[in-house]
Write a protein that binds this DNA or RNA. Structure first.
Lengths: 161, 161
DNA sequence: TGATATTGATCAGTATACTGATCATCAGTA
DNA sequence: TACTGATGATCAGTATACTGATCAATATCA
C-alpha cells in the first residue's frame, strides 16, 4: 500500500502546506491552553494594529500580506471580540481607521508568551542552528516570490517591505 | 509607518503561512497556463489515487495528510470533473473505493510538467543547495510535528509515514 | 470644471481546513 | 447472538484565501 513512487512528499509546495497546517495547529493549541481564543491571522492583525495605531485596512493588509477581501472578515471578528475599534477616517471617508482597545492591549500582552512558545514547538524537530537556517531560507524564498501572490507584503510606502 | 518593532515577519508560523500562500499562487498560475484547472490539493489527491488504485478515502487522507472532512469535498470535485470514480467497496460497505479514470490519467500525465515547474518557481530566490536544504529542514520539522495536527501523515498501515 | 482613473472597502461565490456531531457498518467479545 | 466500541463517511458551522464585481470617495488631468 505504501506508494514508493509518489513524489508528493518531496515537493516544496506540499511541504509548505503541511508545515503551515502544523504551525496553525500548534498556535491554536498553545493559545487555547493560555486561556485565549485567537487565530494566528487575528493575532498578526492585532499586533500590527498595536504597532500602527490608526492604520487603515489596506495598509494593514500590506504589512502582514493579507488579501484585501480577507482582512474585512478578520477585523470584523476582532471588533466583535472587543479588541479593535473600527471608525471612519476623517481624512479619507473611504478608509476605516483601526485602533486597538484597552482589552486588545491586555490580550496582546497576555497572549504573546503563548505565541512565542508555539514558535518553538513547531520547530521542535530542529536544532537551534537548523531553526535559524529554516527561517532565513523561508524569508529569502518569500522575498523572491513576494509579488507572485495576490497579497504581497508592502511597507507603508507602497514599496516591498 | 514602517513598524520596526513588529516581529511578525520573523516568526516561523507567519513565514509558513506566507510561503504556502506563494506556493499556491505559483501552482495555480502554472497549471492555468498549461491549460488546466486543478488546485494543489486536488493534484495531490489525484496523484495518490493514481499510485494507489482502489484506495479508500481515509487511507488516502492519511497518505497526503488531509483532514477526513476535507477529503470529501476534494473527491467530490475530482469526480465532478470526471477525473476520479467513487464507488462503494464490496469488502466494507462503509468505505468508498477510489479509481482514477482514463481522463484522470491523461490529465495527471499532462499536468505534471507544470507542477514541477511550479516547484522551481516558488524557490527561485534560492540556490540549488539552499533549495535542497529548505526541503530537508521542512521535512524534518514536519516529521517531528506530524502528530500535532488533526490530519497527520500515515502510511497504509496506520504507522507514521 | 468635468470626465476619467484610481483607491478603500465590501460582497458573492468557491476551495481548503478545522471542530464536533451523526449515521451506518464492522469487529470483537461476553 | 447481542452488546459495545471502533471505523468510514458525511454534515453543519466557522475561519482563512482567493476571483471578480460593485460602490463610494478621492485624485488627476484635459
Amino acid at each position: 500500500m505504501t506508494d514508493t513512487q509518489d513524489k508528493t512528499n518531496d515537493m516544496p509546495g506540499h511541504l509548505a502546506r503541511r508545515f503551515q497546517q502544523i504551525a496553525v495547529a500548534v498556535f491554536l493549541a498553545e493559545v487555547e491552553q493560555a486561556g485565549f481564543d485567537l487565530t494566528p491571522v487575528q493575532y498578526a492583525a492585532l499586533a500590527a494594529i498595536h504597532a500602527n495605531p490608526g492604520i487603515d485596512q489596506i495598509t494593514l493588509a500590506g504589512l502582514i500580506a493579507y488579501d484585501r477581501t480577507t482582512i474585512t472578515g478578520v477585523i470584523d471578528r476582532l471588533v466583535q471580540k472587543g479588541l479593535v475599534l473600527r471608525q471612519a477616517s476623517s481624512r479619507d471617508r473611504r478608509a476605516r481607521e483601526l485602533q486597538i482597545t484597552e482589552a486588545g492591549q491586555q490580550t496582546f500582552r497576555a497572549i504573546t508568551p503563548a505565541v512565542e512558545a508555539a514558535q518553538q514547538i513547531m520547530l521542535r524537530g530542529l536544532t537551534e542552528t537548523e531553526a535559524r537556517e529554516l527561517v532565513r531560507l523561508l524569508q529569502k524564498a518569500i522575498a523572491a516570490g513576494n509579488e507572485l501572490s495576490r497579497a504581497p507584503l508592502r511597507d507603508g510606502t507602497g514599496e516591498p517591505g
